[in-house]
């Protein structure tokens, strides 16, 4: 039952062209145009395409997992979630299907962008690719939960702007689109965002500032717990509502 639901969810995700275009196409187009135009430049001593690749990969993966979970909103409005509650399907399997679909889409985004990066001359060894990808996947956990939370809080018509706005703001604040000027207290504060560490995970690969374990794990763990708790509350409120 679990495998069948996951399979159907993946099928639906990859048949949804509009969804694929925005989560995969956007970061890819941005990467190819911006990194392509600045191939010979470098930032903080790192070749620009490599630097920019880490940011775009994080941003694309972020969009993938948040928007996958937030699609619950539309399925709630359709009455599909209610229909599912009259079947033996467990809620956690339903949520897992959204998270898994988001992760697979994130992996696809990462793979496509990495290929594009290779095309623009980015060279990393297998160990660096693996470390970067693995840390990205860990850093995405709180955002997968955030997607499920948004899927319960928002109506489908406000979802597009909300998800677009949230992912863009997070990308900007976390340096996915380019470095923020350092030194300000404000910039230091962005380190409390899990997306900051998500972007940093990409930079580990090329020996940037790295990912100091304690702080990164703490931020990611705390956000996961808090968002998870909120998602559970939102789910309970949703299922108790007047029919």
């Amino acid at each position: 039952m679990t495998a069948a639901y996951l399979h159907a969810e993946l099928r639906r995700t990859f048949r949804n062209r509009r969804f694929l275009f925005f989560s995969l196409g956007f970061p890819l187009v941005l990467f190819l145009t911006v990194a392509g135009a600045n191939r010979s430049r470098s930032i903080e001593g790192i070749a620009f395409p490599l630097y920019y690749l880490a940011g775009m990969v994080s941003w694309g993966a972020l969009i993938a997992v948040i928007s996958s979970g937030s699609r619950i909103s539309a399925e709630r409005q359709l009455g599909w979630v209610r229909q599912l509650r009259t079947t033996p399907l467990r809620t956690r399997t339903y949520f897992a299907s959204k998270i898994l679909a988001g992760y697979l889409l994130a992996l696809l985004t990462i793979a496509v962008l990495d290929l594009a990066g290779t095309g623009l001359g980015v060279r990393l060894d297998a160990r660096q690719w693996a470390t970067m990808t693995l840390l990205l996947l860990v850093g995405l956990v709180p955002f997968a939960v955030l997607g499920i939370l948004l899927g319960h809080l928002l109506k489908p018509d406000s979802l597009g702007p909300a998800v677009g706005g949230t992912t863009s703001l997070l990308a900007l604040l976390s340096g996915a689109w380019g470095p923020l000027s350092t030194g300000h207290a404000f910039v230091e504060a962005t380190k409390a965002l899990p997306s900051y560490w998500l972007v940093q995970s990409g930079r580990v690969a090329f020996g940037g500032s790295g990912w100091p374990p304690a702080e990164a794990w703490l931020v990611i763990g705390a956000w996961t717990l808090v968002l998870g708790r909120l998602a559970v509350l939102a789910y309970r409120r949703d299922t108790a509502r007047v029919a």
């Binding site: 048949r15 949804n16 229909q83």
Partner: peptide
């Protein structure tokens, strides 16, 4: 052991 057909409820897409 129970199956229901609710009054409201549309079908999910892409299938």
């Amino acid at each position: 052991r129970v199956a229901g057909m609710l009054q409201t409820g549309q079908l999910i897409d892409h299938l």
